[in-house]
Write a protein that binds this DNA or RNA. Structure first.
Length: 653
DNA sequence: AGCACGCCGACT
DNA sequence: GTCGGCGTGCTC
């Protein structure tokens, strides 16, 4: 019996006579330690456990068994991510500890269906929809990139594929990167299919979660829209997976089990022999490499739907047009905003930095406020002024006196966050109605909906926000987007910095001019000749991606080589140092594999734990997992040292 | 992951 | 002489 715990392997139980018909996949209730747990029959016992220790299975639950593809998927993900299978099963059971089912569940309600007529599609959309529908109808494994510029109507196209899947009587799953996206898109699904899809993400209530889980497990819930964790649910009859905004790094989970939702979705498709659709306006290099090699198909939507044209992108060279002192909006951007407001248009200012200022220092002694638990500056936030850490939950009011020199009134806020940009905008445009959109201002999806509704209703002239505002929303009267610091994401030497910056800025730019008026986008940059800025300015996505791919290929970096990261952490820096050295000495010499490190992780202290990391670089076809298993298996780790394995890492923190 | 056990330092 | 820190090992 596999239990939803991060423990190696399954546990053996006695099978009492009344349960002699138990088979793999059956949900069972078993005693474990002093508790009773819900687990899944995984197979026959190996028989190597002391018979005296064996306890009997208590009961079989009246839920349809976990289908074989779902079980194979669980084992596959465990092996790939090098996590215990029980940790994957825990996600399949909905993540939370729960009481076992006692009663046969009532069928989850399937509301009366009154789907709206399918929308009228452009010829390009119709062709793409037909191709996808055909794949769904015939079934079998396939991966298709739906490659369409922002505003080209990708959602309508894949909704046709969903309709075909539901018509076959199978379940469809749509994976989305951000919860914030769901409110608007959910209404569209509801209107299109006449019934609200089941929502799955970390914020849904326990009762909804339980209801959705049962509907998914029994097969009565036809459509699920969720975050990456929805991929592991026990679908009774899955027939299609859509991964929308497949390039999004939000699909990468980086705690507990480290996995990429998009990659796991493709694996699920293979195992279940079902089509997978990856949708994006700015596909990842990984996906494009798979298209090039012929492993994935591609469908292209080259035009904006309904005659809207792509926005006009202008670079503002901050050297040539510097903002005033203690200001961050350059004269050309200010005049563009002035003109936009005069023409009754809406504008958006994008800065991917929460709070008021990223750094606060004391003018008297130079003291900089740093988090006591993390190697990071404390970020100033307004309201009553506070200093917050964005990596842990540390938060304190700004003190009166400098903690280092006791000076009073000498604090100086360095640099801008969105709150400070909103302050500057308020100063410059006192009549404009300005709102800030960040994870600090929208606590839940209801708050997000309210803000989006206010924007749609024209009650806001200027929205200032972080990337939470960059995704998916469709504001017809939004004609100007200003990017305050286009260079921000390029710093840090991250492997995917350029790719990610391009994708993010392209997404932000795509918010503008989505109906009749042509949108304008201004990018403030200190590096106007940088390939990312040039590609955005002339709209040469493919040229940029080709250049980026050529560079990755040259250095054998993903997707042309493989990476894995080992992160060691401990509250005790000395112990961590020793373990790192021991591990470095134990690296097995292996052809086509290089181990770099140990080095301090960029966040060398995070939530009170010191962190060191190794990076493993290998050829495309190398079995990284076997190597890591052998290597880590040869070293004994003290209990205080946590070892995290990140296959195909995205973040280099 | 939880939980129990067990061994050492700090108090009533 | 007891409380409680967390290092170690176990759960079928």
């Amino acid at each position: 019996v596999l239990l939803p715990l991060p423990l190696t392997g399954a546990f053996d139980y006695l099978c009492p006579a009344p349960l002699s018909d138990l088979a793999p996949g059956d949900f069972v209730e078993v005693p474990f330690g002093r508790k009773t747990l819900t687990g899944v029959v995984w197979g026959h016992a190996r028989g190597d456990v002391d018979p005296a220790k064996l306890k009997p299975i208590l009961a079989k639950l009246e839920i349809p068994p976990l289908p074989a593809p779902q079980r194979r998927f669980t084992d596959w993900v465990a092996a790939y991510t090098m996590s215990p299978p029980g940790a994957i099963l825990k996600m399949a059971l909905g993540g939370q500890a729960w009481k076992p089912f006692k009663r046969k569940p009532k069928g989850a309600g399937t509301p009366a269906s009154n789907p709206a007529a399918p929308p009228t599609l452009s010829p390009e959309q119709a062709a793409a929809a037909a191709a996808l529908t055909q794949k769904v109808t015939q079934g079998g494994a396939s991966v298709t990139l739906l490659d369409g510029v922002t505003g080209s109507g990708k959602t309508e196209v894949y909704c046709e594929a969903i309709a075909a899947c539901l018509a076959k009587g199978q379940q469809a799953l749509v994976l989305l990167p951000e919860i914030a996206l769901t409110t608007q898109i959910l209404d569209r699904f509801t209107a299109r299919f006449g019934t609200a899809p089941a929502l799955w993400h970390s914020d849904v209530s326990d009762s909804t979660r339980r209801h959705s889980w049962l509907g998914i497990a029994t097969g009565t819930t036809p459509l699920v829209v969720g975050a990456r964790s929805a991929l592991f649910l026990p679908y009774q009859n899955l027939g299609l997976i859509i991964v929308d905004e497949e390039h999004e790094s939000a699909f990468k989970q980086e705690d507990g089990v480290f996995y990429h939702g998009r990659d796991m979705a493709v694996a699920r498709g293979h195992i279940g022999q079902i089509p997978v659709v990856l949708a994006s306006a700015t596909p990842s290099l990984e996906t494009l490499a798979n298209v090039e090699s012929g492993r994935y198909d591609r469908l292209v939507l080259p035009q904006r739907h309904g005659g809207a044209v792509l926005p006009d992108v202008t670079l503002i060279d901050l050297c040539a047009h510097p903002p005033e002192r203690q200001s961050w909006l350059s004269p050309p951007l200010v005049s563009a905003l002035t003109q936009t407001f005069a023409d009754q248009g809406q504008a958006m200012l994008f800065l991917n930095r929460r709070g008021y200022a990223p750094l606060t220092l004391c003018r008297a002694c130079g003291h900089r406020f740093q988090c006591p638990n993390c190697s990071a500056w404390l970020v100033a936030h307004q309201g009553p002024p506070r200093l917050k850490c964005h990596h842990c939950d540390y938060s304190n009011p700004l003190p009166k006196h400098c903690p280092a020199c006791q000076a009073e009134g000498q604090f100086f806020a360095c640099g801008p966050g969105v709150e400070r940009i909103a302050e500057e905008a308020t100063r410059r445009f006192p009549n404009a109605r300005i709102a800030v959109m960040t994870s600090d201002t929208i606590e839940d999806s209801a708050a997000a909906s309210r803000l989006i509704a206010a924007m749609e209703a024209g009650e806001i002239d200027l929205l200032v926000g972080t990337q939470i505002m960059a995704k998916g929303h469709n504001f017809p009267n939004l004609v100007l987007v200003g990017v305050v610091d286009a260079d921000l994401g390029l710093a840090g030497g991250d492997l995917r910095a350029a790719e990610r910056t391009f994708q993010l800025l392209q997404q932000v730019a795509g918010r503008s001019g989505r109906s009749t008026r042509r949108g304008r986008v201004f990018l403030q940059t200190l590096q106007p000749t940088h390939p990312v800025m040039q590609a955005l300015a002339i709209g040469d996505r493919d040229g940029f991606l080709r250049a980026e791919a050529a560079e990755r290929r040259l250095y054998a970096m993903p997707p042309f080589g493989r990476l894995a990261a080992i992160i060691l952490s401990s509250p005790d820096a000395a112990i961590l140092g020793h373990v790192g050295e021991a591990l470095a000495k134990a690296v097995p010499a292996t052809p086509d594999i290089r181990v770099l490190g140990p080095a301090d992780a960029p966040l060398a202290l995070l939530r009170g734990r010191h962190r060191r990391r190794f990076l493993i670089k290998a050829g495309k076809t190398v079995r990284l997992q076997n190597f890591i298993q052998t290597w880590l298996g040869s070293v004994r780790f003290p209990r205080s040292v946590r070892v995290q394995i990140d296959i195909d890492p995205y973040s280099f923190f």
